[in-house]
Design a protein around this nucleic acid. Structure first.
Lengths: 229, 229
DNA sequence: TTGACTTACTGTCGTTTTCACAATATATAA
DNA sequence: TTATATATTGTGAAAACGACAGTAAGTCAA
């Protein structure tokens, strides 16, 4: 036990609220804790930040260790520092939200976690620590971000139909959207490009596939364009 | 030195980016550091979080100790955790921004700070640590918040003219605003009420004084109203 | 082959919002 | 009385918004 300080110190952790979308609704990735405290309870993936490690790196590392996910879009959104949020001792957690394409990540079990499972965002089990509150904040944050930045695309496959995009926005915002007006707005922004001769087939009329155009977005942003849906 | 841990720990601090407005432009409150490191350099008010202290409480305490300011609007906006942001050791800082009425706070010197002084937000001196970057983020954050929440009013005196309000928005957003359209929008929201027979006098036509109506705002918010300027 | 089914796709029109723009009003100061 | 400084107000054209429903293009099963 060689690390000694003049004053007591809080421990520092990161937690990740990982969002996914399966065409039906918004999903959240939770792990079942394999260790005390809250052993067996569902929780956000996360863990301690090493003393020589960047916060975002810690978030990526823990996410990878506990769920197998890597190369994901991460955004820090708030620090949680309530005095008794961890029963062991004072722990301050920096929370990130992650956006990922659901089916890139059939999650696997791992080190500290018994298993990692996707839950419907509005049917969550009882959670460890203050993770319920963290998720609440993450949802609020996501809802306000998704309308002014084109981050929703990270939740969809690289090629998607406008119907899928609309479904995503309806899930995140929690309300229905008029199909004609939605399509008009999306196409007017010219941020998505139709893929020639690529369609999603089913037992109905094939749907045009699109992809998001990040370069176009950078261009537009430079000339003062403001994303809005 | 009785506080010993199995692994090394980062220290935890808070920093406050305090905004003010004097009718001319946006101001920032900085302190001159009285201690090493960066002794004599300008810095954000802030300091260590006690192990049994809420983050926001620490922010308020440090702000009060170093500048005399209390009862201010505080909002957490980001944690800064760069590995070498403090030359002594690993320090993670949770940053807050504060909005205050400039002339309520003729700042005074104090404990750890030689002096506290208001600077023009766009003429800042060389700063300690990564405080330049923290301020940059705070400004970005303020600019996006001020358009969708009526927080700008905290920077004005309780009674203000529409011209003052407009000047504030022009300072924060960094661009000019059409006077007629601005006034129309503000008055249409019905969030400010004209004070009968109260005017600001000068060597010109007296200007109607208004006050912000927080109750009205709560009402409107409940019925789905969205502030926007 | 045909008809039923499923989902994709598209356009109009009235209303509202936005934006550009400048003249008059009311006080003080000389 | 006049000069000066700032406060205050309205209109019209263009663009954006929002409500609204019928046709298109495939699959599937009889």
């Amino acid at each position: 036990m060689p690390f000694t300080y003049e004053y007591p110190r809080a421990a520092l952790t990161v937690d990740c609220v990982v969002f996914g979308f399966d065409g039906e609704g918004l999903k959240l990735l939770l792990i079942e804790r394999g260790l005390e405290p809250f052993k067996g309870r569902w929780a956000l993936p996360g863990g301690f930040v090493r003393v020589d490690e960047e916060l975002e790196h810690a978030a990526r590392r823990e996410l990878h260790e506990e769920t197998g996910i890597s190369e994901v879009v991460l955004e820090q959104f708030q620090a949680f520092g309530g005095i008794n949020r961890d029963p062991r001792e004072r722990v301050v957690s920096v929370a990130y939200f992650a956006l990922t394409r659901l089916d890139d990540h059939r999650p696997q079990a791992s080190t500290d976690a018994r298993q990692a499972v996707w839950f419907n965002a509005n049917e969550l089990p009882k959670l460890a620590f203050d993770h319920q509150a963290i998720i609440q904040q993450a949802l609020t944050h996501l809802r306000s971000r998704v309308r002014v930045e084109p981050i929703g695309f990270h939740l969809l496959p690289p090629k998607f139909t406008l119907t899928q995009l609309q479904g995503l926005y309806e899930s995140v915002l929690g309300r229905e959207v008029d199909i004609r007006n939605f399509r008009k707005r999306v196409l007017a922004m010219e941020l998505v490009v139709a893929l020639k001769k690529e369609f999603q087939r089913g037992r109905q009329r094939p749907a045009q596939l699109y992809r998001f155009d990040p370069k176009r977005y950078e261009q537009l942003k430079k000339s003062g364009f403001q994303f809005e849906l």
